[in-house]
Simulated scan of single mutants.
Amino acid sequence: MKISARNCLKGKIVDITSGIVTAKVRLDIGGGNEIVSVITMDSIKELDLKVGDDAFAVIKSTEVMIAI
């Protein structure tokens, strides 16, 4: 697979919290860092995601905000 996004972080799925329509997928990317993504349950099933799987967080955004 090729992708145009340049921000791809490899990690391991450590938790999937399923809802009715969406799920939160928590990805451990190492160094004590985690990324959480909310995706549809259809995507969870289509990708056959489960805890322990290796996966990528692909970040594609037109802006990143920082606040204090």
Rank of each mutant, 00 (worst) to 15 (best):
M41Y: 00
G30W: 03
V36L: 11
D53I: 02
V51R: 09
M41P: 01
I3T: 13
C8V: 15
K2V: 13
E34P: 00
K50T: 10
I16T: 06
D48I: 08
N33G: 04
R6V: 14
T22C: 07
I59H: 02
K50N: 12
I29A: 09
K12E: 15
I3S: 09
M1R: 12
I35S: 06
S43P: 02
N33C: 08
I20H: 03
S43T: 05
I66H: 01
V25P: 02
M65R: 13
M1T: 15
G30F: 02
I44N: 01
I16D: 12
M1V: 14
G32E: 05
E63W: 00
E34C: 06
S43V: 00
C8E: 13
A67K: 12
E34M: 08
A5N: 03
D42H: 12
S43M: 09
G19I: 11
M1Y: 05
N33E: 12
A5H: 02
S61Q: 03
D53G: 07
K60P: 01
V58N: 01
I59P: 04
A57I: 04
A23F: 02
K50G: 07
I35M: 14
D28Y: 00
R26N: 05
D42F: 04
T22L: 10
R26I: 13
A67L: 14
S43E: 11
M65C: 12
N33I: 13
N7I: 13
G32R: 06
A5Q: 11
D48T: 12
I3Q: 09
L49S: 05
E34D: 06
